[in-house]
């Protein structure tokens, strides 16, 4: 099976020859996130081979795919952690993500939750939320400015949303794996981004918690665009959104969960040939 046949139709939506130069800045796309032909190589290993994807404002999208399909590498490219060798990544129609670094991309309104929950373990839950709150990130504003005078109520409301209010003064290190996932989602909400990238949010959660998380994400979508990477098919089904299946660094199939899971190519890569 050649990779060429795996190219999704979306890859041809842009006329060829569009660079990332100034002329490109003028082009408007109505998509919030526009990825075209991203290619990443690590020491000869091709992690992404021409990945293309578009995401509308407020859309929720689930990304599935076997291990090594390039799901996390894709997120790394969007958030500035990894620079692709070639390709286009536009945010909000105008911002070229490939020229920005992580803080600048975060500043544009892209929040990320990591596969392994990453919270500030030495800090209390309320401090974790405090540091994530949207607002100026400069040193002086944190030394003397508003971040030292945040209303308790604002933080508590966010902790309430993710169900962790009773633990507000405990260090984050004390939380269970699932609770850390929730805290990290709470931090994402505090960031109030336009786009949330959520990597495996329900790993280590009970069924009830998983259902709760799906509800939470559905509530968030609409106001924010959300990309969820997840293996748990029940959870993906519960999200009730479009699904994209990646395989070997490119899009294999895209559509409703039923259509994608019925796609013979998807079945083949999951079950082996």
């Amino acid at each position: 099976m050649s990779t060429a046949t795996l190219e999704p139709p979306a890859a041809h939506a842009t006329p060829p020859g569009l660079g990332t130069g100034p002329a490109n800045k003028k082009r408007q796309t109505d998509a919030l996130l526009y990825l075209d032909d991203l290619r990443v190589t690590f020491d000869g290993y091709k992690a992404l081979r021409g990945l293309s994807l578009t995401l509308s404002r407020g859309e929720m999208r689930a990304i599935i795919g076997p291990n090594g399909a390039g799901k996390t590498t894709m997120m790394d490219c969007i958030t500035g952690k990894t620079r692709p060798d070639t390709g286009i990544a536009l945010f909000d129609g105008t911002h070229d993500l490939l020229t920005l670094d992580e803080p600048a991309i975060a500043d544009l309104g892209i929040g990320r939750k990591f596969q392994k929950p990453t919270v500030f373990e030495s800090h209390t839950l309320s401090d974790n939320i405090l540091l994530a709150l949207k607002g100026p990130r400069a040193g002086f504003s944190s030394l003397f400015g508003w971040r030292n005078r945040v209303e308790r109520g604002r933080i508590d409301a966010l902790l309430e949303t993710v169900g962790l209010l009773p633990h507000r003064d405990r260090p984050a290190a004390d939380l269970s794996h699932g609770q850390k996932q929730w805290l990290e989602i709470g931090m994402l909400l505090a960031q109030d981004p336009k786009l949330l990238l959520v990597d495996e949010p329900v790993a280590g959660m009970t069924d009830a918690e998983t259902a709760e998380t799906a509800n939470l994400l559905r509530r968030i979508a609409g106001e924010h665009a959300v990309v969820v990477v997840e293996h748990d098919m029940h959870f993906v089904r519960a999200l009730e959104c479009r699904v994209t299946c990646l395989h070997e660094g490119a899009v294999l199939a895209e559509g409703s969960i039923d259509a994608v899971s019925a796609d013979p190519r998807v079945v083949e890569v999951y079950l082996g040939r």
Partner: peptide, 8 residues
């Protein structure tokens, strides 16, 4: 690295 993804 986490602080970077928060925009710091």
């Amino acid at each position: 690295s986490r602080t970077r993804f928060l925009g710091y």
